[in-house]
């Protein structure tokens, strides 16, 4: 299917000339206008807001950090408010707040409880992963039992407390795989240098070799995505998460060319990242609509289908 990169993102917003002229005098006069001082003229026709709803979008990478709200529920509702404006159907969240790069065992429980509170009553819109750490193996295994085996969560989040090459990660991955859970491993190859416990895509490759049945997502495409994509290219078991980096032109095209569209998974890293900037990576990519739909939702749905079936939910 041939497709031009811009055809799926004709986003329109219209204002009549008369509406503008009615208020342009203030700017022409050099007035400083704050949000609260804007004139309240009514547009003649409603604005056309939001991108076209031609794709079903599941966001695989969201957090409760970076969004306002006193409670987990308030934060979740605010996140969903922004997601609604951009026609995002479902969010996957993990980790609470504030971010803790090397959380204590107690902090893991506290943050997972925040996530459980956030998804309660919103299960039709939100899925979640359990936050674990190889630094606290017993707690992590217990949290997997509590939150996945006995709870609503569908995946595991490994961040930067220890690298994927850590022996303790093997136990976590074995248990997650037994439960058919998705394993999301944050990765970066930072020009400025990684954190001591920060994995690279090559660490995920090593993990995949040890656990050929694990459902692995290589987070952030390794940051330096030209390297990350190459690193995982020969391992079809590893999917590429594209969230949480600048909306650099060419990432998705290279990923589709080298891995195939069925290995690329959309996510945002909201609230720290903008939903908009991350959606643009897919909307703006020079790939066809079938490939975009795979990336926006279908690949994640396929990964989650086995565990959702165990919970009596069809994806």
């Amino acid at each position: 299917m041939s497709h031009r990169p811009d055809e799926s993102a004709d986003l329109n917003f219209y204002l009549t000339r008369r509406q503008w002229l009615a208020t342009s005098g203030a700017l022409a006069a050099g007035l400083t206008l704050s949000t609260s001082s804007l004139p309240a003229a009514e547009p003649e026709t409603p604005l056309e807001l939001g991108p076209p709803a031609k794709f079903e979008i599941w966001d695989q990478h969201c957090h409760l950090s970076g969004v306002e709200g006193k409670t987990a529920g308030e934060r979740m509702d605010n996140l969903l408010k922004y997601a609604d404006r951009l026609n995002i159907a479902k969010l996957v969240i993990y980790m609470g707040w504030p971010f803790a790069t090397n959380p204590s065992a107690e902090e893991l429980l506290r943050q997972n409880n925040q996530v459980l509170e956030a998804i309660k009553g919103r299960e039709d819109r939100v899925l979640s992963y359990v936050y674990v750490s190889p630094e606290h193996l017993e707690t992590s295994l217990a949290e997997i039992r509590r939150c996945i085996a006995d709870g609503p969560m569908v995946g595991v989040k490994l961040w930067v407390a220890g690298r994927a090459t850590d022996d303790a990660v093997d136990k976590i991955v074995e248990e997650a795989t037994r439960l058919k859970a998705v394993i999301f491993q944050h990765t970066w190859i930072k020009t400025t240098g990684n954190l001591p416990g920060e994995s690279t895509p090559l660490d995920v490759v090593a993990l995949a070799k040890r656990h050929p049945s694990a459902r692995l997502i290589c987070g952030h495409a390794g940051g330096n995505w030209e390297l990350g994509i190459r690193a995982i290219r020969a391992y079809p078991q590893i999917k590429l998460g594209i969230a949480g980096s600048d909306p650099t032109n060419g990432l998705v095209e290279m990923a589709v060319r080298e891995l195939g569209a069925d290995r690329v998974i959309y996510g945002s890293d909201a609230g720290g990242r903008s939903f908009a900037s991350q959606l643009a990576k897919v909307y703006g990519a020079n790939i066809n609509d079938v490939e975009k739909q795979l990336i926006f939702a279908d690949n994640l749905k396929a990964m989650l289908a086995p565990i959702l079936r165990t919970k009596g939910v069809a994806s």
């Binding site: 986003l11 807001l49 991108p51 922004y82 909306p247 032109n249 903008s274 908009a276 643009a280």
Partner: peptide
């Protein structure tokens, strides 16, 4: 910052925020 960034990134930010028509036009 096109073409280094996708153009749609800036465009979609206008929809992600709750902007009135006057703010949008400005």
């Amino acid at each position: 910052h096109f073409p280094f960034f996708h153009f749609q990134s800036a465009l979609l930010k206008l929809d992600e925020s709750d902007l009135g028509w006057f703010q949008r036009e400005a």
